[in-house]
Simulated assay, not measured.
Amino acid sequence: MILLIETVARRYVCRQHDVDHIGVVTQAEHDERDRRIIRYHLGPLLDPADPPPPASGRLHTLTITLRRRVVELVVPRVDLLAEAPVIVPLAPFLAARLRLPWANGVVLLDDQPVIVLDLRRMAADLALGLRLTHA
């Protein structure tokens, strides 16, 4: 199953099994097992030109549970795609040039390329404090 993730300005897809839970944003700082919750707005995390969603709208969290921490990625919209698109892996020369390996392919949706994100890898890197640095 494939999830379509919409930020304010962009669309991404990910594999549903990368996400442990989809829910609404809470103010909790720890989960039920007392693991620290780290929250990021996905749009600005990947692209500084993508503004954070307005606080007045309904926001969703994509929760990825790691051994010692929980990472929640906040987005305005998440949908399950009815038909799984064909994922084209990134070419090795392109993948080797990524700052962090959070993208692992591309799909065509409505004749437009959409990046496939590896949210589990992204969450592990964010838990370690690794983030994209935009020049």
Rank of each mutant, 00 (worst) to 15 (best):
L4V: 05
L4I: 02
I5G: 04
E6H: 12
E6Y: 10
E6V: 00
E6R: 15
T7K: 05
V8A: 08
V8D: 01
R10T: 02
R10H: 12
R10N: 15
R11Y: 09
R11K: 14
R11L: 09
V13G: 03
C14Y: 11
R15P: 00
Q16M: 11
H17G: 01
H17W: 09
H17F: 10
V19F: 01
V19R: 00
D20V: 04
H21T: 10
I22L: 14
G23T: 07
V25W: 01
T26H: 07
Q27H: 10
Q27S: 11
A28Q: 11
D31I: 01
D31L: 01
E32D: 14
E32H: 11
E32V: 08
E32Y: 03
R33D: 09
R33A: 10
R33T: 05
R33I: 01
D34V: 01
R35Y: 07
R35Q: 05
R36F: 09
I37H: 01
H41T: 01
L42F: 12
G43Y: 08
G43F: 02
P44M: 04
P44Q: 07
L45M: 12
L46N: 06
P48C: 01
A49I: 00
P51N: 08
P53M: 08
P54C: 06
P54L: 10
P54W: 09
P54V: 06
P54D: 12
A55K: 11
A55E: 14
S56P: 00
G57P: 00
R58F: 13
R58E: 12
L59A: 07
H60Q: 13
H60T: 10
H60N: 14
L62K: 07
I64C: 10
I64L: 15
T65G: 00
T65A: 14
L66H: 07
R67G: 00
R67A: 13
R68F: 09
R68G: 02
V70P: 00
V70I: 14
V71H: 05
V71G: 03
V71F: 14
V71Q: 04
E72P: 06
L73H: 06
L73P: 04
V74L: 13
V74T: 07
R77K: 13
R77E: 13
R77C: 05
R77F: 10
L81H: 04
A82I: 06
A82N: 09
A82R: 13
A84Q: 15
A84H: 14
P85D: 06
V86M: 11
V86W: 07
V86C: 04
V88D: 11
V88R: 15
V88W: 06
P89M: 09
P89D: 11
L90D: 10
P92T: 05
F93R: 11
F93I: 10
L94G: 00
A95D: 13
A95R: 13
R97Q: 15
R97T: 12
R97K: 13
L98W: 03
L98M: 15
R99W: 09
R99H: 13
L100Y: 14
L100K: 14
L100I: 13
L100W: 11
P101V: 10
A103G: 11
A103F: 14
N104A: 04
N104T: 09
V106D: 05
V107E: 02
L108P: 00
L108I: 11
